[in-house]
Design a protein around this nucleic acid. Sequence first.
DNA 1: GAAAAAACGGGACATTTGTCCCAGCTGACC
DNA 2: GGTCAGCTGGGACAAATGTCCCGTTTTTTC
Lengths: 220, 220
Amino acid sequence: MSQLTMIHTNRAFLNFIENQLTEAEKKDRVFLQSWPAGSHLLKQGQGNKYVFVQQTGLSKVHITEDNGKDFIVQFLGEGELLGEIEVIQKTPNLTTVTALTAVTAWCITTDYFAYLITHNAELNRLLLLSLAHRLNQTSARASYQQVYPAEYAMLKLLSVLATQQTSFAKKDLADYLGVSVRSFNRSLKQLRERSIVHPDSFDLYIERDVFERLMREYGE
Amino acid sequence: MSQLTMIHTNRAFLNFIENQLTEAEKKDRVFLQSWPAGSHLLKQGQGNKYVFVQQTGLSKVHITEDNGKDFIVQFLGEGELLGEIEVIQKTPNLTTVTALTAVTAWCITTDYFAYLITHNAELNRLLLLSLAHRLNQTSARASYQQVYPAEYAMLKLLSVLATQQTSFAKKDLADYLGVSVRSFNRSLKQLRERSIVHPDSFDLYIERDVFERLMREYGE
DNA sequence: GAAAAAACGGGACATTTGTCCCAGCTGACC
DNA sequence: GGTCAGCTGGGACAAATGTCCCGTTTTTTC
């Protein structure tokens, strides 16, 4: 089973933007901008003028369905690219991207990004890698969350969270798992009762061997 | 909401392979092969020597989880590319691809495909488009199936099926929706009882306006 | 064309998840 | 310091889904 990545990062992109492009190339086509927590970098259904490479901060990529419920596709950290799919496909945004903390990101005009795709082999390579990686992650996660009960998916999520110092809102974690906050709490409580996770809070540590035993247990 | 594609096809790839490459270029690097129904084109966890472009037939891309359950990522029809992600990432297959009918496909050696990516702008462009498209589809579907009850996702699936002359096994449809066959039957029965779908079978026609009314109904 | 294998349909029951609700806590703001 | 909004935790119940199972129908195989 491939490694689940909760917060996607990509230093290679950041390095590319910051060190591989000359000032002349950047001119007014590539610049830095910042967003306060809670604001939107992209909005579902809209077109966008820029492709972004996140420099600092944490954001969420999410889809709001017609019934008002949110599904979180992924969390983005340092170096991740956003808005590129829409440029490649020339379609409006499928997702909304919301800053969870203050975020700074490089903005690249869509025209210039489109130019880079065809004229810069290195960017092209990074882009292919990134798309392939995300496709794998997305498929693996969709499969995972459909096939296992929520409690099991939660375990996996918690084991990832334990390695993260960032703290998330319950709602966001629940949206990420595709369950209600109530269900999320319930599962958490059960895991605590079975002494699987530490009673204090949810950014808790799970012993690796306990985790692995559970995975096997459920797996059978 | 973007259009759900149940069977992915891509004539552009097929056209590329069949008409854009000279015989000299193909040599022993690109050739046609066929598989009987039920056999595997790719196997989860293994490496592969070829990238395939499906010429005829129907196949399913699926992930088998540790507990033995299957999740169907997508169905592939004419022209779709398979195995390319693994080549880009140089990783073993995340998925298994199984022929549902007899399948013929062009086989391209991974080396040659890797060469084409960097030396053939047209293939590179098609590849980016395909990845972007699939990423959108996968995200949209994951969101959809997590956020709505199965019966609703089923309605959507049925409305797509109605436009398809191919017939699917119940198990495959259930795996695609990420539910058990029992649940699938139950939902189907309920939809029939409410006269939403034709009583005969499930490759039935749903009136567009009935369908849309239901979507709104659920949507609120 | 008979026997074996697989797919189908659904009853009964257990488990999981969602909805609604309320009470306690916390932090923002006046 | 008060109050108000929002997050939190969980009880009670309803709805959705899974598991197990068995008789029927369809398909495959020899």
